[in-house]
Design a protein around this nucleic acid. Sequence first.
RNA 1: GGCCCUAUCGACUAGUUGGUUAGGUCGCAACUCUCUCAAGGUUGAAACACGAGUUCGAAUCUCGUUGGGGCUACCA
Length: 516
Amino acid sequence: MKQRRVRFAPSPTGPLHIGGVRTALYNYLYAKQAGGKFILRIEDTDSQRFVPGSEEYVIESLKWCGIVPDEGVDKEGKVVEIPCEEHPHAPYRQSQRKHIYRKYAEQLVASGNAYYAFDTPEELNALRKEAEAQKSSFIYNHESRNSLKNSLTIPADEVERRLAEEDGWTIRFKIPENRVVKMYDLIRGDIEVNTSTLDDKVLWKRADELPTYHLANIVDDHLMEITEVIRGEEWLPSLPLHYLLYEAFGWEENRPQFAHLSLLLKPDGKGKLSKRDGDRLGFPVFPLQWINEDGEISHGYREDGYFPEAFVNMLAFLGWNPGTEQEIFTLEELVEVFSLERVVKSGARFNHDKAKWYNQEYLRRKSTQELVEAFRALEGERLAPFDDQYVGAAVELIRERAYFVYEFWELCSFLFEAPGEYDPAGVKKFWKDDVKEIIPQVAHLLEDLEPFSKSVIEERLENQIRSNDWGMGKVMNTLRLFLMGRNSGPGVADIMAILGKKEVLQRINNAITHLG
RNA sequence: GGCCCUAUCGACUAGUUGGUUAGGUCGCAACUCUCUCAAGGUUGAAACACGAGUUCGAAUCUCGUUGGGGCUACCA
């Protein structure tokens, strides 16, 4: 059996959107499952829309996710430009493969499958406008091509002259008339389209002397011996053209199989997920932060505190499921169980809550030490005076309450800084005459307590409060207020054990003098 | 408009050969635990878009309608 070779082929026109990351992920999982190759190819045949930095962004995003290309990118994370043993098909950037495509385009003209067209963009736009006015649409196809300026209507010597003297020409594919193209999609099954509904797509652009996606894509997939093309659903309407191109080149024998992935949809309303939805609804649409030329910042999952494993797991389940009830999978486990047969055909709405839940699940699976390190990475200055044991105790106290490491400080800052003020609502609710009498007595009870551990504190407090009939709620909530400045949070005994006797007594006394 | 894809709880989905009390997860609600808030535990509300047809029997097969999505560039 042939080795599986799949590719992810983004265009460097800006940051990679999470839908793109998902496509890359599915390609990667599919390749790795069979011990195949995952190839990265940069499809930069649109010189107009090129955005500097996007190629690096794609590579860094994939790296963050743990999706490392086998071919196309070297160990330094650079796109390979010169062929070598590991990257025999270099260059992997289409702009650097220009010389390759031209002859294939010419070959199609020679075989009668394509033709030169001399119509200017202005002329075509005028035709489109005209058709629109008559509530129809202009299509460059078998009906119109014979009345337009191309090598099918212009005498051969004239064509020769114009090709030599002018640079205003394109090469168009000559779509056959009234033929049914029978296609097969690994996710969708059989698809049939009549060629008469298709238009004569441009294969070679005058504008930048480069092939269009359609030509470059087919040529490269063939030359790079791609076995399966897994791409977004937006390419499904082009599939008949691509089949016809394989046929015209005589490459049907080893034409890759195709799988079209449904698109990611907005969480609300209509349409596919876009950059603006992230800004509007407050969640990232990109794996990594992106800053455009105007200095506008788009949020990224990485910068927003997501673990890459959680992000990948969440993305994998958006449009795929293993058919079992397990929902937590590492990348390695996903490689094991992934299958295209289980990819869902309909579009999936992105859900921010589920993404957060995944992060929480992964946070819970981290060791305390890993979380201490992540916490320190975020709050270095403030945590510096405290040793790992103390920070670890703090982390263990609040880890169950967090979705993200960045929430840690808010949840346990009181363990590192004594409260400067006390929540007025809590003071009003608990700091009453009877409690003012009781708290000093409670403080006194703690003074000789040894060891000052959670269970010992808990036992002493509970016994005394109950036997004196002071009221558990009143006393405990007041203590919590004095220890952390707020009236909701972890258990009082837990807090005390971490802070230590001296600090606890000091905080209680401070509060008493402060509040009077 | 034309062409193509698609249709199960609010969301993600299971239900691959027609017979299930239509299952799970997120979210939501209630109860429970409890010194508060979380977390946990238990429970609940919640779906086969609609209409025909085939069949003893349809979420599942067929057709149609409707909804959703994509494409319709010398963009990918």
